[in-house]
Every structure is written in C-alpha cells, then in structure tokens.
Nucleic acid binder design. Sequence first.
DNA 1: TGAAAATAGTTTAAGCCTAAACTAATTTTC
DNA 2: GAAAATTAGTTTAGGCTTAAACTATTTTCA
Lengths: 168, 168
Amino acid sequence: MELEHSAALDAETKIAEAPGDHKAELRLWLRLLATNTLIETEIRRRLRERFEVTLPRFDLMAQLERKPHGMTLGELSQRMMVTNGNVTGLVDRLLAEEIVTRRQQKSDRRSHIVSLTEKGRRQFARMAKEHEDWIAGMFGELSQNEFSTLTKLLGKLKTSVRGAIAQN
Amino acid sequence: MELEHSAALDAETKIAEAPGDHKAELRLWLRLLATNTLIETEIRRRLRERFEVTLPRFDLMAQLERKPHGMTLGELSQRMMVTNGNVTGLVDRLLAEEIVTRRQQKSDRRSHIVSLTEKGRRQFARMAKEHEDWIAGMFGELSQNEFSTLTKLLGKLKTSVRGAIAQN
DNA sequence: TGAAAATAGTTTAAGCCTAAACTAATTTTC
DNA sequence: GAAAATTAGTTTAGGCTTAAACTATTTTCA
C-alpha cells in the first residue's frame, strides 16, 4: 500500500483520470491509511518509551476500564476487533503481570470474565491521561470547524464501509 | 483502543466535557482507527480469499510496480513505513515465490535493488484492478463533495500529525 | 430426552513486525 | 590515508495476529 505521495505524483495521477478508474478513491484510502499508521506508530513508540507497554495491552486495558464488572473474552475480542485466539494470548500475558484477573462464570462454564486488578487500574489511569494529551497534540492544527467536519465525515465513511462489507 | 461507540455513550461523554480534557479528540482518533481497521481487515480477507496473498506482500508489489527499475530495500522500507528487517523478511518470501528479484549494486556493494519479475507484474496487475474496485465500493455512499472535503481534511490532519511528531 | 447445532474459548502453525545488536561497506574527518 | 562515523542490510528474540482445527459446554429441536 502506498503511504506517501509527492505533490508531483498526485498531479500526474489526476491528469491520468479516465472513466472506470478509481484513482481518487484509492488516493483517499492511502491517505487515510498513512495518517492512521503515522499516529499509531508514534503512539506505540511513546507507550513503550514512557510506560513499557504495547498498544494492544493498552487497548485491552482501556476496554476493561470502562466495565468495572469485567467482560468476557468474546466481548473483548469483538470490541478490540481481533480474533478470540489473539485475546487469549494477550490476557495470558497480562495475567502474568497481574494487570488483569480471569474467572470462570458459574452460570456458563465455557465463559470467563476478565477484569482489571487494582494494579491494572492504577497503571491505566496513569497512562490514559498522557495518551489523551498526545492525541490532542497531534490534532492541534485543525480548527474547531475542520475538527467537527472530519468527525462527521469519518462517521459517514464508516457507515458506508460497513454497508459495503455487509453486502458482500 | 475503543473501536465503537453507542450513540448513548457518545451523548454521555459530551455532557462530561470539562476543561483540560480531550474526549472529542480521542473520539475522533478512535473513529479514524475503527474505520481504518474495518477497511483493512476486509481488504486482507478479500486478498487472501481471491488471490491467496497477504496485504504486506500486495503493498510491497504495489510499491515496486511504480518503479520499473526497482528500488533499494531501504527505499521500500521508507515507503512502506516499516523497519528494514521487516522488508528483508518480506523480500525473502517473495523471492521464494519468484515474484521479485534482488541484485547487488555494483556502485555500492552494501545496497541491493529489488524489482518485480514478469510473473510478479502480471500477478499484481490482476489484483490491482479488483482492489481498486473494492475500495471504490466501500466509499460509495459519500457524495462527491463529501469525498473531496474528506480528502482535504485528512491531508491537513496528516500535516498536523507530522508536525506534532517532529516537535517531540 | 437425546442427537445435532451453536457457542466460548484454546491451541497450533505460520506470517508480520519491532527494537536492538550485528556485519560489511562507504564516507567523513583529521 | 587511517581512524571514526555513517549507512545498507541482516539476524535475533519476542510479541502480535490470523485461520483453522480443536475441546468443552450449552442450547435447540425433533
């Protein structure tokens, strides 16, 4: 996937536009992807540097933080948009660090509830504050108006994508 | 990272807004991330299903396709926004499938040029066409106007992010 | 009620990805 | 021109991620 366009290249591709091609759509996607990668890579770097934590672990903790009573592995995997097996492994590692607990449900013995420990909650709180500031800093050059328009349009795009996926 | 908000939750968090917090920025980031993940996961799925290829391999081929004379490993890793070591491994696997070639530069014996083989070019052409249609299909619900506004705003955001990263 | 289907989670094999340490070659600098 | 620094790429160890196959349990329904 191309992640960066020179201005010159962008101009060229515009000229090359022809019926039946979708260069503009492709360009929008590549720009979305590049922006996302840029932010994500930097957040990973800072999380590691400041807190020696990975983004997936931070993400999992963020999910649990909003559910004081915990969450099943399946619910976690849905919210994190990853597979069950992935969550199993993450939880194993976080268990070893005593960031989370896992306990079997009495009512359904297939099911397990994962929750943050007190240590996990403390650790997450410390990280979340800075994380929020990092994000805000990266969005700093957008005006209030641009900011809310972008939020709205991304909402629309998300809906459009969901539609296209559901159809298929 | 939270990937989906219910409408109810969004309303709540808006009410909770207070000076010094950045919930709105966080929400925009989560929305960008979710949209990106949604698209990327579906593209990976289709590439695997239709062509038995992974997204990183497709991405690498896409880079090479635009440079008929090939590219050094370093240039590839920059454009793909991944580490050198990552590219070394990807190229090893694509070499084994005879999708690319790698040859040492005479002028600088540390440096190696990677190029698509004829087989690689043919294979990529076949995939690229469909890939473009997939993307266009996902963006279908956006009007022309929304589409170009989103492209412009993402450009701005990208610049803003680059600025924040460079500062740090 | 008991067989079949569905669900929750785990395991496995393989690929992706990174940071850090490393080798080899080239460039800089004194 | 030789030591030092830089550059291109590889290797290594470990975490992340997936699809597919699997186990255990619960639900469905004939």
